[in-house]
Write a protein that binds this DNA or RNA. Sequence first.
DNA 1: CTGTTAGCGCATTCAC
DNA 2: GTGAATGCGCTAACAG
Lengths: 333, 333
Amino acid sequence: MANPPTIKEIAEKLKLAKSTVSRALHDHPSIGLRTRMKVQELARALNYEPNQTAIHFQQKKTFTIGIVLPELSEAFFSAAISGIEDAANQNNYMVLLGQSHDDAAREKKIVEIMKNHRVDGLIVSLAKNTGDYAHFEALEKFNIPVVFFDRIPDKKDIHYVACNMESGTLQAVSHLLEKGHRVIGMINGPEQLVATPQREAGFKQALQKKRLKFDASLIVNSDLTREGTRAAMQQLLANKRKATAIVAFNDYVAQDAVQYALEQGIKVNKELTFVSYANLPLSSYMAFPPVASVEQYPYEQGYKATEILISLLGNKNEQDFQHIIIDSRLVVR
Amino acid sequence: MANPPTIKEIAEKLKLAKSTVSRALHDHPSIGLRTRMKVQELARALNYEPNQTAIHFQQKKTFTIGIVLPELSEAFFSAAISGIEDAANQNNYMVLLGQSHDDAAREKKIVEIMKNHRVDGLIVSLAKNTGDYAHFEALEKFNIPVVFFDRIPDKKDIHYVACNMESGTLQAVSHLLEKGHRVIGMINGPEQLVATPQREAGFKQALQKKRLKFDASLIVNSDLTREGTRAAMQQLLANKRKATAIVAFNDYVAQDAVQYALEQGIKVNKELTFVSYANLPLSSYMAFPPVASVEQYPYEQGYKATEILISLLGNKNEQDFQHIIIDSRLVVR
DNA sequence: CTGTTAGCGCATTCAC
DNA sequence: GTGAATGCGCTAACAG
């Protein structure tokens, strides 16, 4: 209940100067062994803990990084945040959280509040509808670096970490081809997402490697809603070439597609095999999980993004824009 | 790139005292309209933002609340955190995050770091194996209130929000009875969890209401792992009284149980109906979701816990321990 | 209505 | 090796 002990208090009790105590606490070489011991001993006895708010104020540094992302209830992001937290904690940083809930206006507000809160830097995964990056650019003036991950802005002068879906898709389709599938369908995502063309490219590349020709009617798009996916499935099943395997945009899409297929009396993963992206815990709870998943490494993305941010905080004069692209990879169950 | 503007700067440019500027910025009534306008105008022009770290230091208050919970990848907690965040933001608080990953040692460390970081208060859901609450009790000395939710300590002198599973279970079993089921099984959880006896009590109560007698062999326990649940199912299916409905401890358990039943050739939700707890997004992605779920209101728990915490921060002299118990409730799909 | 002064806790520069 | 003095940016108590 009494106020927490301060350096001043220790100094008075020991009849020393505050500065001496401060130095002793920091193991400053110029302090004699005897006094250093005395000081540290008393500090321990009093349960002295430096007042971080004072340090933050004085050092103009809060050892706090802000993290802005769309939605923690998406497994991808809750995995990513663990990577962020781990990397931050290992470097003695704390993590301030803000969910945009995929609302650009809310994202902007969060960024501003975090700026005022004087976070040292920001880790960001954009809201779906963020088109204007002015609120991020404004941070430059305040020397608050930003590292984006996964959902990154469409511009070049930024730091980011992302996952390339092309390699994983190539592996997924190749895997299906090796299993003997010759007609493979794909439920792809909205055109705006960078990941969509990447998936298509990987798909085509796998066919090309086997000298098979690409049939555009076997790629359909979903807006990622349940309805969109069901419509996509309907289209795919109505196609004159009957697919024996389907690459779904992610596990959520896969699950909707599987459900639709089951309703149509299709024997899932027998008559129609599914492959998906994400490999999230979700898939282990599916009744008919995809036979293989393309891993996007959310934890690693978060971890690396944070490492970059912290290195940026170290040498403020770093000019180059860092970008790490992680290759996605197929994981067979 | 230049340092952010300060009150001092504004004061000098306007040939006023710092305190005048400070008051003008805060719309203090004693400041003349003319000067107030002048100050606010210049502040806007300079993009002045108060330095929060200075305010935190000076006010001995950071407007930050720490949140310590086991695991964000559990849907329950990621929902809860949104409630916490919303309540916090509405009251101009920020949220500092720490996951214990169900490790008591890590939890303890997080609490200490947050204490040093001078959070104003803490929202906590305990790690599974936390048995020692000393690190929380230590916070009292520093006047840092703690509000627990869902996974709460087994002691009385605390603030908490929790959900009583008894009412929901009563509703769930009654629902099944009304649908004509006469032999109902339950997969309950580990004995240590407070929620386990609550479920059993609700179960018995529903039977009693219908003047049906309770058969202990129809309640089996799972340790919540997949294997534990499968063993429980095996036991239940081997019982001489064949259940036509099962109440599963949560959606994860339900899914494992459903999978096992399917493997045994049982027509799920036809021959064997499932009811579960949580009603998490997970269940909407199951191929055979439970026909009804007992809602535990994670968002509301987080929200209310935060409201309590913030009220505690308002009147520090509040002595009474607040506890809110939310009744669980059945949601039929 | 406005100015002056002090102090929050700490690290740091400059003396001795 | 140690002490004294300064200032980070802000609010608030006290004067006028």
